[in-house]
């Protein structure tokens, strides 16, 4: 609702200007508030955004510098610690905080080192999907005609394939599965949602008066696309992309859990390793599970907050 925007703007003014100033509204001519500055004002005051941003920051640091959080190695184990119990609270951030897995490796170390793979896959897929989907959606939406027919049919074909099953099939064709391979596989199947959203958004915007005006002034197609259409059509794309990021992290964990995701250190692999001892040593499975869930939750909350800020209608 547009009213919602207006009320927030009115509420802000008295707080920003001291009551002693006689002409509070006209004293400081308000800058033209763009969608983005409005959204940023909303975000700064949203507790959900602040909490999720703090969590994401922590995860990013963990992914970049895992050595800060643990001194233990995620790969070297001491077999005498085989399935040693969970949660020794006295040794904060030490190696045996969460116990040990089947090979006597520190579970906490594996949780910390697993962050890098998840974050890289999540961010990588989102970036690729956003670029590819926006490109395809904008081309289809702006030019229409046969290009739209072909691209849209292609989108239909790709969205007809079930995401998880398709990803499983694509990934089994690779024997070495690095982060890049997983990112490419998920992006290969995942771009369709963004393409649809971008196409719909472009179709609405290309009828706007300012686009007609730009055309009448003789602006080139690329100028219209990049200066007029794209900046105005991108908001819904960003909303969908931020929310999807958490989903891609969950997808990576699921594929790794099935044994067709990453090869290396990953939370999904650890869950899969713990599943056979669920009855006797539940901590082996639960700790990486909690880690995946918290990470996905952080990104989902972040996406929700961004959506609320960019699209006040959804409130």
């Amino acid at each position: 609702m547009p009213e919602a925007l207006d009320t927030t703007a009115k509420e802000k003014l008295p707080a920003a200007e001291p009551a002693t100033v006689p002409v509070p509204v006209d004293a400081k001519p308000e800058k033209a508030r763009s969608l983005w500055s409005d959204a940023w004002d909303d975000l700064r005051r949203s507790p959900m955004f602040l909490i999720s941003a703090a969590l994401i920051l922590l995860l990013l640091v963990m992914a970049a510098f895992p050595g800060l959080f643990t001194g233990a190695s995620p790969r070297d184990g001491d077999l005498s610690n085989h399935y040693l119990g969970a949660a020794n609270w006295t040794n904060f951030f030490g190696a045996d905080w969460f116990g040990y897995d089947v090979q006597g490796r520190s579970i906490w170390a594996r949780m910390v080192y697993g962050a890098r793979a998840s974050i890289l896959v999540g961010v990588g897929v989102t970036v690729l999907v956003t670029i590819a989907g926006t490109l395809i959606g904008v081309l289809a939406g702006y030019f229409g005609g046969w290009l739209d027919a072909i691209l849209f049919r292609l989108t239909d074909v790709f969205s007809g394939i079930p995401f998880m099953l398709g990803a499983m099939v694509v990934l089994t064709t690779f024997t070495e599965r690095s982060v890049l391979v997983v990112v490419l596989a998920l992006a290969f199947l995942g771009w369709t949602t963004i393409a649809r959203v971008a196409r719909g958004s472009v179709i609405t915007i290309k009828q706007a008066d300012y686009v007609t005006a730009a055309k009448a002034l003789g602006a080139s197609t690329s100028r219209i696309l990049f200066r007029h259409i794209l900046p105005n059509a991108i908001a819904p794309v960003i909303v969908v992309a931020t929310i999807a990021l958490g989903g891609y992290i969950a997808a990576e964990a699921t594929l790794s859990y099935l044994g067709i995701g990453l090869s290396g250190v990953s939370w999904g692999i650890d869950v899969s390793a713990g599943k056979d001892q669920l009855r006797n040593a539940p901590h082996v499975l639960m700790m990486p599970s909690v880690m995946v869930s918290v990470t996905v939750l952080a990104f989902l909350m972040f996406g929700d907050a961004v959506r609320n800020a960019l699209d006040p209608k959804m409130r």
């Binding site: 699921t254 859990y257 999904g268 869950v271 009855r279 599970s289 869930s293 996905v296 989902l300 929700d304």
Partner: peptide, 22 residues
């Protein structure tokens, strides 16, 4: 619902199996 969405199905599956079955 936010919690449900963020818990991957394999995590939920094993948690339920552990709690309700074991």
């Amino acid at each position: 619902t936010l919690l449900l969405i963020s818990v991957p199905s394999f995590v939920l599956g094993y948690t339920f199996q552990y709690v309700f079955a074991f």
